[in-house]
Design a protein around this nucleic acid. Structure first.
Length: 806
RNA sequence: GGGCGCAUAGCUCAGUUGGUUAGAGCGUUACAUUGACAUUGUAAAGGUCCGAGGUUCGAGUCCUCGUGCGCCCACCA
């Protein structure tokens, strides 16, 4: 074994060894009593490993390896997501570079192009997960646009349709003019922006005055069809019957009363544009107002906006209208104002609320069992605080807009007859002819489904649903899911209700929402801002194990953010190396004493008993910590125990126990304990740092195993707690000895005693004298029990008098 | 507007049900180098536990208010 552990020389080799062993695949794990299943949050096929993935997947691999060693039949199901908008965007950008676009290419050719891209680059994230050491069952890997998976998606759609949950209709949606598609509420990100609040006078028809409305978007007034006030507002109570003349357009509009109106904002009177504002749309609906679309899908003013405005951008129209109002003396005042404007999560284009025909899933019925499952704790949410957040969202859920005007994705399985124009035909496959008129002039709906519609089915569709596959039967429901908090609603909630709908069963028992990895300044890691740290660089620099261990070391169960500090990874790299050298030291001692085979553990000395007790306490605590998602705590305990108890104390003291003057019995016993400790430590560390532990194990398995064991550490048994070794009294007694040694060391330093000088001291305490050999070695002293005649100084540690002689 | 989280050493964080002298890693300082490891060892310095009030024999820990930072949700015209 080399002096220093070199990750690069071992990681690839070891990963190959694991893969070839077949034990990532649960079918090859024999004699398992229970199952443990984790579905990977399928990364976007366009993705490249970032810090969030590194954390997310380290947690999953840690648990899978932990459970596998505990004898569970473990399945970690991998896959990638076709990621509608993201992937389409990537390929569209390529096309722009080539001087063309998707419309020139046409739908079919474009999709072909995307598939080509996926085949060429889609495997990147998977190869990166392997570098991280992920023990997924790659033989089961799925892609959300696989043929079989697509069938599941269509099955789900048809199912919802048959139950009356799916409807198509005009509704106000968040429209991204760049993507040329509707997006769901969850895909809109809001940013505060400084703007103006324009106060506009709307005159009454009878010339008796005017009502002033305040707006941030004067251009939308072209589509106004009412002015709303709060029914309790005294100021407007007697004006409700008045007819208003909408300036510029000169349309007659009326007052409506609605409780949604905040009397304290602006003038308490609000212009209502049902076609271009969500609230207005709702008010329009309850009051049966006309809808006038003045902004088109290209974010430009439409024909309905009038010929003076048609074709203008919203900003141009705004300027023109403000000018007109000013000329007509209808602009009351302009105030500075700050409010939030919505942007497309994918491309940061300003969202335009417009009315369009979209497909929706009615949520009121579907969500009920999901709420129940979470409330009852059948699905356990960790950390606890997300429980209420999730419930609250589910209880206030809106219908889900599932159609996207994209080409890359699952095309909506709805067909229309071009001849008889009868109602839509919903079918998993394209019908040969129209059931009404027998025409074979059938066309499919142009839209595709929201990517999250398919991801929502992941826990069971990836296992083969709707077919009753062996996989589905064996591995559903799953055990654990972990993900970032930003997709709790987008994904987690939707998996829960989809699973309850189609499987009549929860998708996972526990969902763990881990922290977000921020940089050390507490900012979001972002590629475009250059504030990110690339986990692959860390793996390259410090090794996969150090990266994993470091990430776990800084993760606390309930924390919401991790301020990522590279120093921790460095510290963990050193820890990995420490472990390596512990193994080297033990190997050296085994080799030096090859003539002393022994397999029974019989602690002789206090230190023996102490380390055995401590190890078993640590095993017990770490096991509990991991089961409770307390990965950081488990990591700290392992780190501290291995380095600062086992290496610093036991290993140092063991040197006296295997020294030449030690009895063969003492030597043999010490060796057994060293082997036992090393084996157990390797097991404990393996889920955190699989490569180095497996490397050491492959080097030393024949030397350190006390009983029959597996060829791979990966499938070896998780340490069993040996209660007989736990002894608190011994531990506190050893603590006393440690303190005495530390006290003498401290005396040496503060008195500037040269490092290589052996200090003569006397101790009369008989209990302490028993450990004279150890104290002599570790504190560089020479203890004598005789009463000292010449004493330079007397110190007292732990009630033990220590006389320092010349 | 509603909700959640955080604030402890120069930096990143632990601190369990309130209980002696508040801990760790990194960094800093001093000393140590041929037998596991300098990616090391030993020791040290370093803290008004954000502020104010309260409960208590006792508060980093519990309560109230405030300040600063971060996050989420919402129909902020």
């Amino acid at each position: 074994m080399d002096k220093i552990y070199e990750p690069k020389q071992n990681e690839e080799k070891i990963y190959k060894l694991w893969e070839e062993s077949g034990f990532f695949n649960p079918d090859n794990l024999k004699n398992c009593k229970k199952k443990y299943v984790v579905m990977i949050p399928p990364p976007n096929v366009t993705g490249s490993l970032h810090m969030g993935h590194a954390l997310d997947n380290t947690i999953q691999d840690l648990l899978i390896r932990f459970k596998r060693m505990q004898g569970f039949q473990t399945l970690w199901m991998p896959g990638t997501d076709h990621a509608g908008i993201a992937t389409q965007n990537v390929v569209e950008k390529q096309l722009v570079k080539e001087g063309t676009n998707r419309h020139q290419l046409g739908r079919e050719k474009f999709i072909e192009r995307v598939w080509q891209w996926v085949k060429e680059y889609g495997g990147l994230i998977v190869s990166q997960l392997k570098l991280l050491g992920c023990s997924c069952d790659w033989s089961r890997q799925r892609f959300t646009l696989d043929e079989k998976y697509s069938q599941a998606v269509f099955e789900a759609f048809v199912n919802y349709w048959k139950k009356g949950y799916i409807y198509k209709g005009p509704r106000i949606v968040n429209w991204c003019p760049r993507c040329n598609s509707a997006i769901s509420d969850l895909e809109v990100k809001y940013k505060p922006e400084k703007t103006k609040l324009w106060y506009i006078k709307y005159p009454y028809e009878d010339d008796s005055g005017y009502v002033t409305v305040a707006t941030t978007r004067p251009e939308t007034m072209l589509g106004d069809t009412a002015v709303a006030i709060n029914p309790n507002d005294e100021r407007y109570k007697n004006l409700l019957d008045k007819t208003i003349i909408l300036p510029v357009v000169n349309r007659k509009i009326k007052f409506v009363a609605d409780h949604k109106i905040d009397m304290t904002f602006g003038t308490g009177a609000v212009k209502i544009t049902p076609a271009h504002d969500k609230v207005d749309w709702q008010i329009g609906k309850t009051n049966k107002l006309d809808i006038i679309n003045v902004i088109g899908t290209d974010a430009k003013m439409t024909k309905e906006a009038g010929e003076d405005f048609e074709g203008l951008t919203t900003i141009e129209a705004r300027e023109k209208i403000v000018k007109l109002l000013e000329q007509q003396g209808l602009l009351d005042k302009i105030e500075d104002y700050e409010h939030s404007i919505g942007y497309c999560d994918r491309c940061s284009t300003t969202i335009e609320p417009i009315i369009s025909e979209q497909w929706f899933v009615r949520m009121d019925e579907l969500i009920k069992p999901a709420i129940k499952a979470v409330k009852s704790g059948k699905v356990k949410v960790v950390p606890e605080r997300y429980h209420d957040i999730l419930i609250n969202w589910m209880e206030n859920i809106d219908d889900w807009c599932i159609s996207r005007q994209l080409w890359w994705g699952h095309r909506i399985p709805v067909y229309y007859c071009s001849d008889c124009k009868s109602e839509a035909i919903v079918s998993q496959t394209k019908p040969n002819k129209c059931p009404h008129c027998d025409s074979n002039n059938i066309i499919q709906d142009e839209d595709t489904l929201d990517t999250w519609f398919s991801s929502a089915l992941w826990p069971f569709a990836a296992l083969g649903w709707p077919e009753k596959t062996k996989n589905l039967k064996e591995f559903y429901p799953t055990s654990f899911l972990t993900t970032a908090k930003d997709i709790i609603f987008l994904w987690v909630a939707r998996m829960i209700f989809s699973s309850l709908e189609f499987m009549k069963e929860i998708p996972f028992e526990t969902v763990y929402i881990h922290a977000t990895v921020l940089n050390v300044e507490g900012r979001r890691m972002s590629k475009s801002l250059g504030t990110g740290i690339d986990p692959l660089e860390l793996i390259n620099k410090y090794g996969s194990d150090a990266t994993r261990f470091g990430l776990m070391y800084m993760t606390n169960r309930d924390q919401q953010a991790i301020k990522f500090d590279e120093q921790t990874i460095l510290a963990c790299r050193n820890f990995i190396n420490k472990l390596w050298n512990i193994a080297r030291f033990i190997e050296m001692n085994i080799d030096n004493n090859a003539n002393l085979p022994k397999t029974k553990i019989e602690p002789i000395t206090l230190v023996d008993e102490w380390i055995l007790s401590r190890l078993n306490e640590i095993i017990s605590e770490v096991t509990k910590n991991i089961d409770n998602c307390e990965f950081g705590e488990a990591g700290h305990k392992i780190y501290d125990f291995v380095w600062h108890e086992f290496a610093d104390w036991y290993l140092e003291i063991s040197k006296t126990q295997v020294a030449e003057d030690a009895t063969p019995e003492m030597k043999a016993n010490t060796l057994v304990i060293l082997k036992y400790l090393l084996k157990n430590i390797l097991c404990l560390i393996h889920p955190f740092a699989p490569f180095v532990t497996e490397t050491i194990y492959q080097n030393l398995k024949d030397k350190i195993n006390l009983e029959k064991s597996e060829n791979l550490l990966m499938i070896d048994r998780w340490p069993k707690i040996e209660k007989r070794f736990i002894n608190e009294k011994i531990v506190s007694e050893f603590e006393k000895l440690k303190n005495i040694i530390a006290g003498i060391r401290n005396y040496r330093t503060t008195n500037k005693i040269e490092n290589n000088k052996i200090l003569n001291i006397s101790i009369e305490d008989r209990d302490v004298l028993e450990y004279a050999k150890i104290i002599n070695k570790l504190a560089k002293v020479n203890i004598s029990s005789e009463v000292a005649e010449q004493t330079r100084e007397e110190i007292e540690i732990e009630n033990v008098k220590i006389k320092i002689r010349e």
